Amino acid sequence: MKTIIVTGGGTGLGKELALLFAQKGYHLLLTGRNANTLTAAKIEIEENGGRADILTLDIRSSEEISKKTNEITDKYSVYGLINNAGVGHFGPFQEISEQEIREMLETNVLGTILMTKAVLPLLEKQGEGRVMNIISTAGLRGKVHEAGYCASKFAVRGFTESLQKEYADSNIQFNAVYMGGMDTPFWAESDYVKDPSRLMSAKEVAEIIIEKINQDEIIIENKKS
């Protein structure tokens, strides 16, 4: 059975994508730092007839990624990677701390790059695969009070578009996914979005992504906003 790795797979869009890919017959390897949410997502997938395992992992650590990638190589037939984990800090640029800027760059950019670099050799070896980068419409245009977040997402956009060109003649597909805000736990510790319920659900967004899975660029504007 082919395995798809999902970073930030315990909640939100990561979990919803995992559920849908499980329905298509893939084995899911859910990664993140919170074992409790990962375990809950694993149980939900299994209750729906799918297969999943969890792997606690901090994608900001190259040492941890290298160690755990080596551990899974012999256990799973890795077919794909969904770089979904991300963080955002919003507000006037001068009020965003250096720590918050570093957290966005280290998670959103470095984490995506390190995970991709670790998994690509596995896909190259088998001659096929998929890397899906969840970028957000913040990677398409600048937004007020999102300077640092947009900077991180523009970086992932450039990274993804470059790999699409580099692997254009291979059987490895790179999806760049640009979606608006969603009603997920992403906003739980922020008052930046006053009413997340007006946003599309993660399930709705996941379903659209699956429908457009063969497109290199998937743009989903928030129809409810």
Rank of each mutant, 00 (worst) to 15 (best):
I209Y: 02
K117F: 12
T160M: 04
D53K: 05
E46K: 07
L13V: 02
A18R: 02
N34Y: 10
E211M: 12
L19S: 09
Q94V: 15
V119R: 02
M182C: 07
N34E: 06
H89Y: 12
N36Q: 14
I5D: 00
Q164S: 11
D216E: 10
R141A: 15
K42L: 05
E44H: 08
G139H: 03
A155F: 10
G9K: 00
R51S: 07
K194M: 11
E46A: 04
K67P: 10
H27W: 11
E217G: 08
F174P: 00
T37W: 02
T73I: 11
I172D: 01
E64A: 10
L30T: 01
G180R: 04
P196D: 11
Q23C: 13
E221A: 15
L199F: 10
M1D: 14
T184K: 07
M1F: 14
R33S: 09
K143Q: 15
A138M: 13
P121Y: 09
I43C: 11
I209Q: 00
K153D: 04
K212E: 09
T184A: 08
K223W: 11
T116L: 05
I219N: 11
M132C: 08
I113H: 04
E71I: 07
K203D: 03
G8I: 03
N214I: 12
E204T: 08
Y178I: 05
G148L: 05
P185F: 12
L114Q: 02
I218P: 00
T184E: 06
K2P: 08
D183Q: 07
M115R: 06
E207W: 03
S197I: 15
L30V: 04
M104P: 02
T3W: 05
L123C: 05
I208A: 09
G142Q: 14
R130E: 06
